[in-house]
Amino acid sequence: MNFITIDKKDWTTGIDKSRETYQVFGPVQDENGCQIKPLAPDVHPLMDAGVTVMSPKSVLFPQTQKMLTATLDASIEDHHVMKPVKKDDTPRVVLGIRPYDARAILLVKLNFDNPDYQDPYWCEAYAATTFVGLGVNHPGPCDFSTSTGCGPFSEEGLDVLMADLDDRYLAKILTEKGETWAGACGFDTRADAAESQSLFDILRKEAEKNITSVDTDQLSEKSILDLYEAPFWDDVAFSCINCGTCTFVCPTCWCFDIQDETKHKTAVRFRNWDTCMSPLFTHHASGHNPRGSKVQRVRQRFMHKLKYFVDKYDQGIMCVGCGRCVASCPVNIDIREVCTIMNNYESK
């Protein structure tokens, strides 16, 4: 494993150099908070940003994505035939992605890239993207990433993991993609591997001290039906207003809805993020809604993340502990509390 050291004085020069090869994404701040966005040529990533309001899942899975188009002009031979739109498969790099968000991408990958089905839009974007992560030196109060198979310096899903050492970044190159990115930036000052690794370990241990832990060990043992029929859901759901905030800020929520729109002679098929918090999510054409009540929808979200996913994939919970839903929920529904209730639940 290679380690390189990057003097912060050289950082912006290197990033600017890499723009010849990569479209650069990174955290930027505006009056509405911090988000990971494509950076304009004169903008540099705000590397010391805290948790971004939105997760970087939109880099691979935009909230609204055009999939197919057709012409409705009957004078054209292939009218009404849906055709794929041209996809942007140019190399891109996401700077300052946090380890929990990198793990989230691997969880989302289970849905979009598996033996049964490969989503062309997501897979091509994934193949084109390099993830340059930054370890979390100071985890916030909502962070519980150590309980989700992840952690402040987890390497999973990353191509490079960096550590912020005040005047410099120490970068651990994890993949070939990462090596290529470092090359494109001209970052090539090698650091001693053993020494660097021990620095990473110290930072990791220091950061982990500040992270609250949540037990998830009993979830797989519980019976689905017991949890489903448990009496606590009414209390959990009472305050919920059924907005989609938790699912939209979540790095692992992957559900989408497909919509067709037409204007004049053009037809377009989009997909948009959807949310299980909305009654429309399960509204049948017949008018029946199998999840017609708020309690059912709230239960679905937690059961999916903390039980159905656990049972189906055997990869732990469908949550990386970033804490965004906890921080953004208007009514303070806290997944850590719900997870604890579920994990400890004994049916009578």
């Binding site: 505006d30 907005c243 989609g244």
Partner: peptide
């Protein structure tokens, strides 16, 4: 410009 159409404003 940053609206994500979660409809929290409406639902609250």
């Amino acid at each position: 410009k940053n609206c994500i159409r979660c409809y929290a404003c409406r639902n609250a």
